[in-house]
Design a protein around this nucleic acid. Structure first.
Lengths: 377, 377
DNA sequence: CCTTGTCATGTAAGCGCTTACATGAAAATC
DNA sequence: GATTTTCATGTAAGCGCTTACATGACAAGG
């Protein structure tokens, strides 16, 4: 822990003041330097001059060392190190039309499943020399359009957006800008846009099938908010479709939409249990809701799965440690993050087209689901 | 869900091929356009020509509308909308020396406490028109240096790094680049670098005090890995300091460092309980470890806090729903994220110097701590 | 009516890189 | 030995913006 003097800011501050108060030619010219006026940062020109070569050679030595003679390469390298030279990304991006920057728009960062995906995404990008620009949409399509636009302005080389369903303007903007992008989480084989994800509805169906096989007939669903969220919508649709397939009646009172919070899961459970005829199994739109449901059941001394079965969706790392372990959909969040990064990088590096990719999202049966109490009804 | 044709990538791909195979002057010139050769994006020049004004006026109309007559402002605005013009961030950054981009280096994204902070940080940045560049260090100081360098190359207007303890090179790079930066999480009033955080050690001391007051004398600590992690180090130090203050003996066998995972918490508990004389209270370096400890205790039927008290550190949203609720340090992660963003933005916008800021991190007593079993020893 | 501001707009010079093309020396070919 | 080819390096033209300064119209002041 060695700490150097921290004066940069002050100087910068004072400099700004000077400029404001006394816009002399000199002050203005000074201000334009990259660092705000003080010790200006070295540029390729400086490196070139000191190393006694042209700027083109410096650029080549730095970006395609193999095209430069070893002596010059070393000479340039030495000067670069000596001066602590950092290339200007803006200038590079402007001149080369590549920013080595990739954008992502996620609905939220406060859900471990997205964080995990983003972490995987970032990790791959970082290894390939890219930096991640991240923005959050808060599950709001019109806000998302703004964020996409902003990322495009920042000159990202590619972009990842969550979900297939977006505002028209988002797609228009993306296509107009001729952007390289990939959607994640959802998968639709007929999708005209590339998607790296899984079939949310199909996975939800397997949950119902599992519960049906266990004898459950009275199923409830605590879905996420479906507005502007195609994943939540698809999961709900999957559950309904499977129930229809099994000829199960769907009591509207057993279907609800809740924000993805533990508290909402608890509230949902309380509501469901206060019904005259409570469900024997509760399908949750994600693990956070499922955990909330479990917590409330626990508090009320209602046995899981003895009295009620619970299912989640996501397979958050914590869910396997719960007691009993949560039966859930094992969502390949990391694989998706990696694949999304790979496809974007390959597109930039080798010009590979961005192709869709389907992942499995298998049902993971653990302890929260069991036979329907009282046998089949 | 309206989906447009998705042809951009292919064209770009083909175009790259063309260029590679036939580097005619035309193909090359074409390739240089921002979009890769197809329909090129409009520029200020295009807007200016169509609106019948100069590029300077376009720039002013877009960035400082009040300096332009209403008619021209409208005229420019209309053309901008019509052409779907998106300014080039690279060109803006190069010309104005401002990127409207802020960087962050975090140890991991796979810990809800950081995600929450980042979410708060991003939210404030976004409101102010900034975009967040995020990189992760994986708790590795030398990797962190690389990431800082990369962010600087990308031309961030400011940067946030987690913790006060960093590699020399990190600080050297930061100062040399004259960067506006702030460290978060830790706070040290004597720090020469600005820090927005709380006193990790002091908070850890309050945990010990609380346990001591409950009669516990045999304390164990499951700390995080302290290497390259000043927060974990400070927490451990705080615990030791408080124990010394209370004249408690510190059995080395009761102190261990573990990665921040649930499983490690479980393992730690198993180890601790297999000791001939197990602790009556276990202080955990963070909530994830604490939850792991709780899960294992639960599995073994060991009563909390009847037989053993547990404390966490972070106050993750889930911890209040646990049964019993986890006694932990209420870490102001969102406030820190907001404050870090605010200070960086104010520095850019108004030239305010970046000042340190101290937050409270109070002990939150919930159900996992109780009187020492068997009274005081 | 002339001067002096004031203000909206234009002109054009960069910002710091990349890279097409030019150049010239050395190597290869005839 | 004259030629062509190859290759490392240099020259200089942008990339798409911002902005200092120039300009000219018009208003205000004398």
């Amino acid at each position: 822990m060695k700490i150097l003097s921290h004066r940069g800011i002050c100087v910068k501050y004072q400099n700004t003041m000077v400029v404001k108060k006394n816009p002399s030619a000199h002050a203005i010219r000074t201000r334009r330097r990259r660092t705000g006026g003080v010790a200006s940062q070295p540029t390729v020109g400086d490196i070139a001059r000191i190393a006694g070569v042209s700027t083109a050679t410096v650029s080549r030595a730095l970006n395609r060392p193999e095209t430069v003679s070893p002596q010059l390469r070393d000479r340039v390298g030495r000067v670069v190190k000596e001066l602590g030279y950092l290339p200007s990304g803006a200038a590079k991006a402007l001149a080369s039309n590549r920013s080595f920057t990739i954008g992502a728009v996620v609905p939220t960062l406060n859900n471990a499943i997205f964080s995990a995906c983003i972490a995987a995404f970032e990790s791959r990008l970082s290894d390939a020399g890219y930096t991640l620009l991240i923005t959050v949409s808060n599950y709001d399509h019109s806000h998302e359009t703004q964020q996409v636009r902003r990322l495009l302005e920042r000159g990202v080389d590619g972009m990842m957006v969550v979900g297939l369903d977006h505002a028209d303007a988002t797609y228009v903007t993306l296509e107009r800008a001729n952007a390289a992008y990939v959607t994640i989480w959802g998968y639709d084989e007929n999708s005209p846009v590339p998607c790296v994800g899984f079939d949310n509805a199909a996975a939800a169906e397997t949950v119902v099938d599992h519960l049906f096989a266990l004898g459950h007939r009275r199923l409830a669903m605590v879905a996420g908010i479906t507005r502007d969220n195609d994943r939540a919508t698809a999961r709900l649709a999957g559950v309904k479709r499977a129930m229809q397939r099994h000829n199960l009646t769907m009591d509207p009172g057993l279907f609800m939409e809740k924000p993805y919070t533990h508290q909402c899961g608890r509230d949902a459970f309380a509501d469901l249990m206060s019904l005259s005829e409570p469900p024997t199994a509760i399908i949750c739109g994600n693990d956070v809701l499922a955990m909330g449901v479990m917590f409330e059941a626990n508090l009320r001394g209602i046995a899981i799965p003895g009295e009620v079965s619970i299912t989640g969706y996501d397979n958050l790392p914590i869910t396997r440690h719960l007691n009993p372990g949560l039966t859930t959909i094992d969502l390949p969040s990391e694989a998706i993050g990696h694949a999304a990064a790979d496809v974007l990088i390959a597109n930039q590096a080798e010009g590979h087209p961005i192709k869709s990719r389907l992942f499995d999202a298998p049902l993971l049966v653990r302890g929260t689901t069991g036979p329907c109490p009282g046998g089949r009804r």
